[in-house]
Design a protein around this nucleic acid. Structure first.
Lengths: 219, 219
DNA sequence: TAGTACCGGAACTGATTAGTATCGGCATGA
DNA sequence: TCATGCCGATACTAATCAGTTCCGGTACTA
């Protein structure tokens, strides 16, 4: 998909211009509702009410609810992790903690709630689910891949572990905690994961524990 | 919830007895449909058709679709991992592979597809989602906890890793792979996880690699 | 044998909702 | 200035589906 999911209409010159600023408002409302109630329970009228838009304006832009959600989720991608400005603290542990800090707990919460909202579609509407995966999870894994790759390059990683698999550990465990257990993905949990699973798996000694902030400091 | 989710009815002696064997048939059909289309898209008529049952028979047993699914999922638990007869091969790696073998890929597939079917409810209907978690995932994590605990007891584990967190690694990563990536949780993937993540994280040397079967043997 | 509660099947009801149509009003351009 | 197409709002249509009710028939009890 891309820019021209738009409904075909005869090219004519007259008439009021479509107010493109309504697009973002409607898509933002779409994400809000998706996060709050999930795809199946989300109704077009809810989104219209939230965006203070008429349904006509919505169906003028997207041919169906599914297409609208698809674009809303795809746009989320732009607000996610910025792969061009990843932290570089000198240690993998420091980088991972900085990445979390940069994102903020609030974004992560919205993040997982959006995934939970899309979860219904995993089996049902692979297109939308894939869009959710591409927009939300893949960039995060990619960031992990890059940070771990750097750690390998500077010989911080002593095991021959598979970087691709290692990069999935934190997102996958975070998903389990947030979606299934419904407990917060907070700093404490991240530190647990780093020190008990990821860093040992990569053969990085826990000596960082005393040097860097860990469990027990500001949440 | 437990045995008496049943609809209250006046105790009278006369009449044809309720055919209790229909219960299992209906619940099994419920799981089938849940697995195939997910909770939201599953209709009571689909289940009735699959079970060759009348809707009356179903509503005589459960007051709502939700209650019926709840019991269906709860009953799955009995068919899951048998915590009293876990494998004991002498090594954690062997135990984990044997646990997978015992379950069979088919069961794991049904397992995750059931979870995917319930995923819609994670945010929406916590009761049912929790039942799914208790029935499907918690026993699996518990099995991991026990097997890792044994490995600690026989000093196979050399790191001071948190057993509770370690026990979640394989189920969580399996969920990510199966629900989000929609790729099979097969033996190859399990071996990858064991050798690249779990065993190194626990400080277990990869020397087992040559002694035990790994990647490349019968799927 | 009479009465009751079950069975599968099928028709029905009421609520919900995606998508369409239409309203009065406003902005644009010919 | 006037036709056109946008705007939000609201009413409508057609389909879907949970839950109810009734049917003809069967099994069990008294």
């Amino acid at each position: 998909m891309s820019e021209s999911d738009e409904i075909d209409r005869p090219v004519r010159s007259g008439g009021r211009k479509r107010d493109t600023s309504r697009d973002a408002t409607i898509l933002s409302a779409t994400i809000d509702i998706l996060v709050e109630v999930g795809f199946e329970k989300m109704t077009v009228d809810m989104v219209a009410a939230r965006a203070k838009a008429g349904k006509g304006a919505m169906y003028r832009r997207w041919p169906s609810k599914a297409e609208m959600v698809l674009e809303a989720v795809a746009r989320l991608k732009r607000n996610m992790i910025d792969l061009d400005h990843l932290p570089d603290t000198g240690s993998l542990r420091g980088d991972m903690l900085a990445l979390f800090q940069a994102g903020s707990a609030e974004r992560d919460e919205r993040f997982y709630r959006a995934m939970a909202g899309l979860a219904a579609l995993l089996a049902q509407q692979p297109e939308i689910a894939d869009a959710g995966h591409d927009a939300l999870i893949e960039p995060w894994i990619e960031a992990n891949r890059i940070l771990i790759g750097r750690a390998v390059a500077r010989h911080e990683v002593t095991s021959g572990a598979d970087v691709a698999v290692a990069a999935q550990v934190i997102p996958a465990m975070g998903g389990y905690r947030s979606l299934i257990q419904r407990r917060p993905f907070d700093r404490r949990f991240l530190v647990d994961l780093l020190d008990n699973v990821l860093l040992p798996a990569l053969g990085i000694a826990a000596s960082h524990l005393s040097a860097d902030p860990g469990i027990g400091d500001r949440q």
